[in-house]
């Protein structure tokens, strides 16, 4: 009885990913003792929440059956807008931030309307949006990174302040990430909205037949995804005191990889925030550890890709054994 229980638990994608995360971590520690050094862990935790925050939103969006390729571009545009407004017009940081988020809301809303009401696939809509938003970020900055972003404001501390706990250095983004993770778990697994999100991704017409406002839910999720991508970009820009129009290039695919490796279905219906959490750590740990164990920089995407592929093959095999129809 107990062994059956364990077999079933191992078939859950979250747990199999967690086991692999453990194995890979151990391999990296053996490969280079520095992997667990306070400095390396601090670096890992400084960078991880910035992609992680986007991955949380992407998890909910994928569960509803859509995805968003424009997040990497929004990650750049939002802080670039904020920085330009503050530096060129002397606008208050809070107001500039509000305008930056308003732009994110508009981008998400447009994505949502085009996907749900016009009926174009989210792949095509958000791919076009990626080009438009990235192009806008490049045009308004004329392609150059902005001058150093030194702003004194309570909001800056709230978004990117840091503190030390012993040898470890934590950024505010870490707490944002924890808070948003708990919120995402609550929404997806315990709220009425989460039930709707899963139902829409699982069988949209069944959800609509029960009176679930599927289009409104999807538009809301597109907006949330854009806003969180903008928040992540702003946090990142403030941490390194620079807003660059090319920041976040390629993040859209990395984020989707994190979510899918965690066990969320790419075609909707089944989403797991805990799995995404494991996926976020897995991809960051791989990128970090692979450098530490001495894989040549130019070769490391080969390893990252191969490990993601191996994970997906594993999930597919486990799924095959559990599915009945």
């Amino acid at each position: 009885m107990k062994s059956i229980h364990w077999q079933n638990a191992l078939k859950s994608p979250e747990l199999s990913s967690l086991v692999i995360l453990g194995v890979i971590t151990v391999l990296f520690v053996i490969g280079n003792g520095e992997f667990l050094s306070p400095l390396n862990i601090s670096n890992l935790l400084a960078f991880l929440p910035e992609l992680g925050i986007i991955a949380l939103a992407m998890t909910l969006l994928l569960t509803a059956g859509e995805f968003d390729l424009s997040v990497g571009a929004v990650f750049a545009l939002c802080p670039v807008m904020v920085a330009l407004l503050v530096q060129n017009t002397g606008m208050d940081f809070a107001l500039a931030l509000l305008l930056g988020f308003a732009a994110c809301v508009a981008i998400g809303f447009l994505n949502g309307i085009l996907v749900t009401k016009v009926g174009i696939s989210s792949f095509l809509v958000t791919l076009s949006m990626l080009l438009i938003v990235r192009g806008a970020a490049l045009y308004i900055t004329q392609g150059f990174p902005l001058k150093s972003l030194e702003i004194e404001h309570v909001l800056v501390t709230l978004l990117s302040g840091d503190f030390r706990a012993g040898p470890f250095r934590f950024y505010a983004s870490f707490w944002w990430f924890i808070g948003l993770t708990l919120l995402a778990i609550y929404v997806l697994d315990y709220s009425k909205l989460g039930n709707w999100i899963s139902a829409i991704g699982s069988n949209r017409s069944a959800a609509v037949a029960r009176g679930v406002p599927a289009d409104a839910v999807k538009i809301g999720l597109f907006i949330a995804t854009s806003v969180l991508a903008g928040l992540a970009g702003t946090i990142s820009a403030l941490r390194i005191s620079a807003a660059s129009p090319v920041a976040g290039t390629g993040y859209e695919l990395e984020v989707i990889a994190m979510v899918v490796v965690g066990g969320t279905a790419l075609n909707g219906g089944r989403g797991t925030v805990l799995g995404t959490l494991v996926g976020i750590f897995l991809l960051r740990v791989i990128r970090n550890g692979i450098v530490l164990v001495g894989v040549p920089g130019l070769a490391y995407n080969i390893f990252v890709g191969a490990i993601i592929l191996a994970m997906l093959v594993l999930h597919a095999l486990l799924q095959k054994n559990t599915r009945r129809t």
């Binding site: 039930n195 709707w196 899963s198 139902a199 991704g201 699982s202 069988n203 069944a206 959800a207 029960r210 009176g211 679930v212 279905a265 219906g269 089944r270």
Partner: peptide, 14 residues
């Protein structure tokens, strides 16, 4: 029905 949801969640969907 939504196949990924539990029986209980399907019964009360909406």
């Amino acid at each position: 029905l939504a196949p990924d949801l539990s029986i209980a969640r399907n019964l009360f969907l909406g």
